[in-house]
């Protein structure tokens, strides 16, 4: 599958890199739950979701590398870049302090991803459209999973309600960055304008929160910077761990 070069340019490469970095960092966090989940079913489900996200990341980073034309493959992009070169939102890099935090992140990010990928599946660029159509189907499972747990934690015990509300409050400010204005490249199509996704995203998330007896936090503080390479302190630790073997053996093949 080859993208028509006329529609591509540096801005499409940057755009694809953002999507790829979001998926990669989210996968790294979700995979961290292996052997630590509250029940074995959840170990399996979270590994499954991590695998899906990693699959998206690999497809997107490979494509970003091709658009760039500098010979960097998915691994060179994942393991060879420094912190400030990553374009993911800060939401996905937040540490999963507890299961409620992991679920809040999965809900907010998953709904965003599904809306975005659904829009991108009609992109003018056929490669991006192909990846998005495939990913949209998988992301629907992630949202289903996150919604199921949001309901159970929000409307479960007093303790779980307290924890889930705290997680929602903690993660909420970071959701604003998902919808920062900035039109996508023409090749991505009109369905991919992040600013336009905020409305449907809010409606869907608010409905889930209400059903889960959780309060929707006020909009206020809106941390940002991920898209331009400014990240949280925790991100450096994530990268240090993820990249160290690759970097300790320059040029080695694995």
């Amino acid at each position: 599958m080859t993208a028509p070069m006329t529609t591509t340019g540096p801005d499409l490469r940057d755009y694809v890199l953002r999507l790829g970095d979001d998926a990669l960092v989210a996968a790294q966090r979700v995979a961290g739950w292996c052997t630590r989940a509250p029940q074995f079913e959840e170990d399996v489900a979270l590994a499954n979701i991590a695998l899906d996200l990693l699959g998206q990341a690999r497809a997107l980073l490979t494509y970003a590398g091709e658009l760039e034309g500098l010979g960097r493959d998915e691994d060179a992009l994942a393991f060879g870049r420094d912190e400030h070169e990553f374009r993911n939102v800060q939401l996905v890099e937040l540490p999963d302090d507890d299961f409620a935090t992991a679920i809040a992140k999965m809900l907010f990010f998953g709904v965003y991803q599904r809306l975005l990928y659904t829009g991108l599946s009609r992109a003018a660029d056929p490669t991006l459209a192909g990846i998005a159509a495939k990913a949209a189907k998988e992301t629907a499972y992630h949202v289903d999973h996150a919604v199921s747990w949001t309901l159970r934690l929000g409307d479960g015990t007093a303790e779980s309600h307290r924890r889930m509300q705290a997680a929602v409050d903690h993660v909420w400010p970071y959701t604003h960055e998902l919808f920062e204005p900035g039109p996508p490249p023409a090749a991505a199509g009109p369905g991919a304008d992040p600013a336009a996704l905020r409305g449907p995203w809010c409606r869907e998330v608010e409905q889930v929160l209400a059903e889960a007896t959780l309060r929707r936090p006020e909009d206020g503080w809106a941390p940002t910077g991920g898209r331009s390479g400014v990240h949280t302190e925790a991100f450096g630790h994530l990268l240090a761990e993820m990249q160290y073997v690759y970097r300790a053996h320059p040029g080695a093949r694995w």
Binding site: M1, A59, P126, A129, G130, I131, A133, K134, K137
Partner: peptide
């Protein structure tokens, strides 16, 4: 060997 994603499986 060519891998295609569209139409999705």
């Amino acid at each position: 060997i060519v891998t295609v994603l569209s139409p999705p499986w």
